[in-house]
């Protein structure tokens, strides 16, 4: 285990749209404050809708501190770009950076909540993925 961390998993929101990811971040931070590191990797470098492998990689390196990073993608290329970004990382960062297979917003807020309680990367990822199929109306 790497030892320099703050004990909290970081989260990266990967979306085609900067507005969508920043909006999601804003709502999440209203709930949990700035307790954990949440970064946005969204849009292309020339401001089109899309995702950017190198931007995702850069954000992981910015927030990685030994406790792991969970990445929440929106659709399609967000997943593929994230996978490529993870593959290009070096160990131990690579194996401590994981991709959640969850709804974008519900997964992000559940993961952030769990991370803010100091849970492990596996637990944070599980919290995100448990939102799949979650009912909103009882």
């Amino acid at each position: 285990m790497v030892e320099w961390g703050d004990g909290l998993v970081g989260i990266i929101l990967v979306s085609h749209s900067k507005k969508m990811a920043e909006g999601a971040k804003e709502i999440i931070e209203q709930v949990i404050g700035d307790k954990i590191k949440i970064k946005v990797a969204a849009g292309t470098s020339d401001n089109r809708l899309g995702t950017d492998v190198f931007l995702i990689e850069q954000k992981v390196l910015e927030i990685f501190d030994g406790d792991g990073v969970l990445i929440i993608p929106d659709l399609g290329s967000a997943v593929m770009s994230t996978e490529m970004a993870i593959e290009s990382l070096e160990e131990p960062i690579r194996s401590m950076t994981q991709l959640a297979d969850s709804p974008f917003f519900e997964g992000a807020i559940a993961a952030a909540m769990e991370a803010s309680f100091g849970k492990s990367l596996e637990e944070v990822k599980q919290a995100a993925e448990n939102t799949r199929g979650m009912k909103k109306i009882a």
């Binding site: 292309t44 470098s45 089109r48 899309g50 492998v53 290329s77 593929m80 770009s81 490529m84």
Partner: peptide, 15 residues
Amino acid sequence: LVSTVGGASGPLYGT
């Protein structure tokens, strides 16, 4: 292609 395309064809054709 990976760094400039933006859509799914970037990672796909890039790979």
